[in-house]
Design a protein around this nucleic acid. Structure first.
Lengths: 138, 138
DNA sequence: GTATCTGCAAAACATTTGCCCTTTG
DNA sequence: CAAAGGGCAAATGTTTTGCAGATAC
């Protein structure tokens, strides 16, 4: 892996990931920074997001959508994804549960476990409220 | 959802999902069936995979890769994904654990939970063996 | 100074879609 | 024979890449 130098653009992308929002897309980041860097290119946003992921500062979350979502790396957590509106919400991880999950793999498989992800898929509260009364099963 | 008629192509795709392999890609399905249906198009494979997913006969698994993976719907299970070679392996679900996971969401969130997925990411046994002795940390 | 970063545009890639003919029921 | 499926090719949308100039160290 080549040496990584500092760059204003990547610094700001890292800041956006860490402070402004929990889950972002490449094009959201691009839109946020266009004013600050009028010549910014989407390709460079992708390049920097990849660098951040490679360096362990960000996670790429490939949900079912047509695009990927990124988040700053922080303490372990799970995700709830709304199938209707795409909203993503963090779910806290009970330590005991994580241990149980990981133990499913450690034992006899011979695989090296790097990380475990849990995704809950469903319909979020807001979307359920939007549903018509007759379609209560949504 | 429009009414779904029978088609030879979709029947064979369903069979492939159920019998031939655990996890398949659209282009693998395409390659398998080209001989049998010389005029088969990749677009049609995608169309039919989408129909099977919509009808609850198949799952789409959007792992980190650049392409999606499909599997026939069967009893609940988790996945181990090798970061190096992309191999996917099923992991059995202890019933008690699944209940604990689901309970994380049911309670106060107000969301409707449709399904829960668990993915273990790491390096599979085969890839670890391939690693040089000096790179034991892989 | 030289390796890395950037903008730009083009390429790559998986997936979807429109059109028109074929098949199913 | 009306509606759904298929083939083909073009379109779509996201992500990556090659190149030439700018920037970091």
């Amino acid at each position: 892996m080549a040496k990584v130098r500092k760059s204003k653009q990547r610094d700001r992308i890292r800041e956006l990931l860490e402070r402004e929002r929990i889950h972002v897309t490449a094009s959201w980041v691009y839109d946020q920074l266009r004013e600050e860097f009028p010549t910014l290119s989407l390709g460079n946003v992708y390049r920097n997001l990849n660098i951040l992921v490679r360096q362990g500062e960000a996670n790429r979350l490939p949900f079912g959508s047509t695009f990927d979502v990124y988040e700053a790396v922080r303490k372990p957590h799970y995700h709830f994804v709304c199938e209707r509106c795409g909203a993503i919400e963090d779910v806290a991880v009970p330590g005991s549960l994580q241990a149980q999950l990981d133990s499913l793999l450690d034992d006899s498989s011979g695989h090296r476990l790097l990380r475990t992800t849990v995704e809950f898929h469903g319909i979020c509260q807001a979307c359920r409220k939007k549903a018509t009364p007759s379609s209560e099963d949504q």
